[in-house]
């Protein structure tokens, strides 16, 4: 199995000179099994380039599976620009966390409603179907075995552990840490006091996450914030590399990949973050890599990442 990063940015796409090397597009990762099965995790703006690549590989209609962590814009905005959707006969299965599959259809359909995008979803040639995921309820997609994991993010979010070809990786984004803030179904203008029940919920969520990540080869984690940024915005629903490293070290994860980079973190700062946390990871016994657009990572081997384009990536 291997994974390729098509979008590594959080919140919104960031064009310009400062994001040339790490990339400016939002969340989208492609996993490939050894025999070529494909699953797409999140449908941020990175999905446009992925779609173009998939069509270059095969012009005919195919079945695609898309696992969504949640449906904030930066995780779904690429969907209307996914070119295979315009090939008649294409089937796109959307898997997401929501209380009702009906509602999911409305939310995804809403992306392309007349006001936001010229073509309504019903007019797109591909057929879409919707599957509700539930934390802890595992399922199979072709060669992939998928385990959804509850995360701590405004209005809910879900991570995925994906096992295939005798190895595993996990996608843990978007999530806040599990101590100061419990995200629920309402808007937070700042941290709210935690009740005893809240603390129990956070503890349970963290415990389940560590249990599911135990022994996973590679964990891709929401590390949007540096510690000083997190201190100012603890209620935004994102983590720091330190918090990710704690979880991964505790779960005996081999390799942590920093992901969902803040829009304000330009290439030079990303180089510093990469170097700082590579060293911190060594001290904690976890290899820490920093994701960039076009990075392909073999899972379950010690092979180094490959770069799609030699000019893209860390200095």
């Amino acid at each position: 199995m291997q994974i390729t990063f098509w979008g590594v940015r959080g919140s919104y796409p960031v064009p310009g000179a400062a994001t040339v090397r790490y990339g400016g597009q939002t969340s989208c990762v492609e996993a490939r099994s050894a025999k070529g099965d494909c699953v797409i995790v999140d449908a941020g703006t990175g999905m446009r380039a992925l779609g173009n690549k998939l069509l270059r590989e095969s012009m005919g209609p195919r079945q695609y599976h898309v696992l969504l962590s949640h449906v904030h814009w930066d995780h779904i905005q690429g969907l209307p620009f996914f070119s295979p959707a315009y090939v008649p006969g294409t089937k796109i299965a959307i898997h997401a966390l929501l209380t009702a599959a009906d509602e999911l259809q409305q939310v995804i359909g809403g992306i392309t409603r007349h006001e936001f995008f010229p073509m309504p979803l019903e007019a797109v040639p591909a057929t879409f179907d919707y599957h509700q995921v539930e934390p802890g309820v595992e399922f199979d997609l072709g060669a992939f075995h998928v385990t959804p994991i509850a995360l701590n993010h405004p209005f809910g979010s879900v991570g995925y552990r994906i096992d295939c070809d005798g190895s595993s990786w996990a996608y843990v984004s978007d999530t806040a840490p599990f101590d100061r803030v419990l995200h629920k179904q309402h808007f937070l203008s700042g941290p709210e006091p935690l009740s005893d029940d809240d603390k129990t919920s956070l503890g349970t969520m963290r415990e389940a996450l560590v249990a599911k990540l135990r022994g996973v080869d590679t964990v891709v984690y929401d590390t949007h914030f540096l510690p000083d940024e997190y201190a100012r915005f603890p209620h935004y629903g994102h983590s720091t590399p330190d918090q990710a490293l704690d979880i991964c070290a505790e779960a005996n994860v081999r390799r942590l990949v920093l992901y969902h980079h803040a829009p304000s973190h330009g290439d030079e700062q990303m180089d510093q973050i990469a170097a700082t946390y590579l060293a911190k990871g060594e001290a904690a016994g976890v290899e820490v890599l920093t994701s960039f657009e076009g990075m392909t990572l073999p899972i379950g081997t010690a092979d180094p990442p490959e770069r799609t384009n030699p000019g893209i990536g860390p200095a």
Partner: peptide, 13 residues
Amino acid sequence: QNQLAPHYSPLNG
């Protein structure tokens, strides 16, 4: 308002 609906945005309105 729909753009900032809770599904799509943590701003929630």
